[in-house]
């Protein structure tokens, strides 16, 4: 295998997959950091987003990309609604109960997808797409657009968190919740804003995975482990960390086929998760440990 083949067969798919993981992991790290619990319904919310985009596309008969913003908006609303209905009343009880509630929500979201859209796999677009060559690197259009979309999302989110008043309030809440409250930040607003952003990110992750792979009712559940591995690897609460972690997990999964049978790709994330918890639980960029 030449070097360029290695890049094209392992690194390119790894970066594409990893950037999708990153979008999901950023949401996980935000919930972990600001609301302080592991959100187990994250993957199934992504599934829901992917299917909403599918229906939108069917409705307008257009490119799947029109489905992305619609799905992001719907998923944001769903996430806020889920919080109000199922998580909010557990606010003052031990956080682990919210984790449990989120596992129940995962199951509920998935069964809604299964009832509404069925259990069979589907895709946004049929047919084989040939990749184009850019300086020897083979990229399909959808892969290129995926990378662009992820870059846009990450840059936009970073700008929001660094520059805007409410973005700073979210960071403050993640950093020191008591002091944020003493400074007059309303916890409920930050919580709602966080869920809106996280829901939108979920939908984006689900859409991009569906675009580069396929859609089925279990797709999001299988995203859960790599997303958590990425978030913890990068450092809980760190957006840049989740991006880095996502890319590492994605590339590691694509490289794992060199030494492991293909069906164990999914085990890579698990191994990374256990290793990072063992040697550096704060993650690469020194995040939080709950």
């Amino acid at each position: 295998m030449t070097f360029i083949d290695f890049i094209n067969f392992h690194i390119v798919p790894g970066v594409v997959l990893g950037s999708i993981y990153a979008v999901g992991a950023i949401g996980i790290t935000m919930v972990f950091g600001i609301l302080r619990f592991a959100h187990l319904a994250h993957g199934d919310l992504a599934t829901m987003g992917a299917f909403i985009a599918l229906s939108t596309m069917g409705l307008f008969g257009a490119s799947p990309w029109v489905g992305l913003p619609v799905a992001m908006i719907f998923a944001a609303a769903i996430a806020v609604g889920i919080d109000k209905t199922f998580y909010d009343y557990l606010r003052d009880r031990p956080k682990i109960l919210t984790v449990m509630a989120s596992l129940g929500v995962a199951l509920m979201l998935r069964s809604v997808v299964q009832v509404v859209w069925g259990v069979d796999s589907t895709t946004y677009q049929r047919g084989i797409v040939r990749p184009d060559e850019y300086f020897g690197i083979l990229l399909r259009d959808r892969e290129l657009y995926t990378l662009l979309a992820v870059a846009t999302i990450v840059i936009g989110l970073e700008a929001f968190l660094r520059k805007s008043k409410w973005g700073k309030a979210m960071r403050a809440m993640s950093d020191n919740p008591d002091l944020a409250r003493l400074s007059g930040v309303d916890n409920r607003h930050v919580t709602m804003l966080t869920w809106a952003i996280v829901g939108a990110l979920c939908a984006a992750a689900g859409f991009l995975l569906g675009l580069n792979n396929e859609l089925n009712s279990m797709m999001g559940w299988h995203l859960l482990l790599p997303m958590f591995a990425a978030a913890i690897l990068g450092g809980v609460g760190r957006v840049e960390g989740a991006l880095l972690g996502g890319l590492i997990v994605g590339i590691a999964e694509e490289l794992s086929v060199l030494i492991l049978p293909g069906q164990y790709k999914a085990a890579t994330a698990f191994v990374i998760l256990l290793l990072i918890l063992l040697v550096r639980p704060r993650g690469l960029l020194n995040g939080k440990v709950l």
Binding site: L40, K95, V99, L103, L273, L290
Partner: peptide
């Protein structure tokens, strides 16, 4: 760690 991590690892 807090039990959140155990939840994820046991799912894995």
């Amino acid at each position: 760690f807090r039990s959140d991590y155990l939840a994820i690892a046991t799912i894995g």
